[in-house]
């Protein structure tokens, strides 16, 4: 059996589903449960990572400092992960995260813009941190481009590199091709992070493992924006049956998922109509709450808003475009 390392961003990416409102008790409780299950890495933070609490995407209920110290205290065996988007967080945030005991630090960049990570990956290399780089919205680049960008970030200092299917747009063959291209271009572990907009997240993750990915992301109950992420407690046993070892204890994993469903979310994510549309349109799933709110206010069809955002090639972080698109569609409707 070959081994795959599971990276669990429930307490970071899941925040998108609850407008970044996870409290201290929820953070502590889930981190303890994940630690007990033997999940190797538990990632925590605002949904867009360190320093990203904002009106643009939502202000967090708990400060970065308190989130990190809470989860650090709760983890005995698991390593603590954090996430940072250059232009949102800064090296100061990285420095603070290291001081809080973050073990794995992921820098996220749009899939064609990896040079934005050069400075921060260099900083992390100097600091001796385990730096990862993830290429977001990876359906917007070809396998060849992704492989080139992955090789660049390894040169900058990343010790693992991979892709996020931020819009939940991929089918398994798309993943096989892309992970294969990246694995052929770098000699560090390759990461895959799936979203479930088209119901493909687990299948895509297994395809990634078969194509050579060494690190897979999954969230309890799929906790995440829109249709959610790869459902962790499904992914792990499916991987084991497919011949990939995770080292995670099944009952502990199922208990952690029970805790998450009860304490972290009003209801587990479902593949709702709007999530299907955002997957088809290739728009970041995290836009959903704001698209819904703005569309309701202006009386426009949120599905039209997603397709128009896709046409404008909106990338993660560009939530401010939603207001413009809604205003434009609402004016067009008034004229027609």
């Amino acid at each position: 059996m070959s081994a795959v390392e599971i990276h669990d961003p429930t307490l970071r990416d899941g925040q998108h589903a609850v407008r970044h409102q996870l409290g201290v008790a929820a953070l502590r409780g889930y981190a303890e449960a994940a630690d007990a299950a033997g999940i190797p890495v538990v990632e925590v933070g605002h949904g867009n990572g360190l320093g990203a609490s904002s009106l643009q995407v939502g202000r967090a209920a708990v400060s970065d400092d308190l989130m990190l110290s809470t989860v650090r205290e709760a983890l005995r065996h698991s390593r603590m992960g954090v996430f940072m988007l250059p232009g949102w967080g800064t090296s100061d945030d990285l420095r603070k995260a290291i001081a809080h005991g973050a073990d794995v630090i992921r820098i996220g960049v749009h899939c064609t813009e990896t040079s934005l990570a050069e400075r921060h990956l260099g900083f992390l290399r100097e600091a001796g941190a385990d730096a990862h780089c993830v290429l977001m919205m990876s359906h917007m680049a070809s396998p060849h481009e992704l492989a080139e960008q992955a090789a660049l970030v390894v040169g900058y200092g990343a010790r693992a590199v991979g892709i996020m299917d931020s819009a939940g747009h991929f089918l398994p063959e798309d993943v096989t091709e892309r992970i294969g291209a990246i694995a052929g271009a770098v000699d560090v572990p390759v990461i895959f992070h799936g979203h479930n907009n088209l119901g493909m997240a687990v299948a895509n993750s297994v395809a990634a493992a078969r194509a050579g990915a060494g690190i897979l992301d999954g969230c309890a109950r799929g906790f995440g924006a829109g249709a959610g992420n790869t459902q962790l407690e499904v992914l792990v046993p499916v991987l084991e049956r497919s011949g990939f070892e995770t080292g995670i204890e099944l009952y502990g994993l199922l208990d952690a998922a029970e805790f998450a469903e009860r304490e972290l979310m009003p209801a587990p994510p479902v593949t709702g109509s709007l999530s299907i549309v955002s997957g088809l349109a290739g728009v970041f799933s995290g836009f959903k709450p704001q698209v819904l709110a703005e569309s309701r206010r202006a009386g426009v069809d949120p599905r039209d808003v997603f397709f128009e955002l896709g046409r404008r090639q909106a990338i993660a972080g560009q939530e401010d475009l939603i207001v413009d698109v809604v205003a434009e569609l609402s004016t067009a409707k008034a004229i027609a």
Binding site: Q56, G87, H110, E113, M140, R312, Q313, I315
Partner: peptide
């Protein structure tokens, strides 16, 4: 707070 996004949209926005 200040935030900067770099967009690769084509044609450029």
């Amino acid at each position: 707070k200040a935030i900067l996004n770099i967009s690769p949209a084509v044609p450029p926005a």
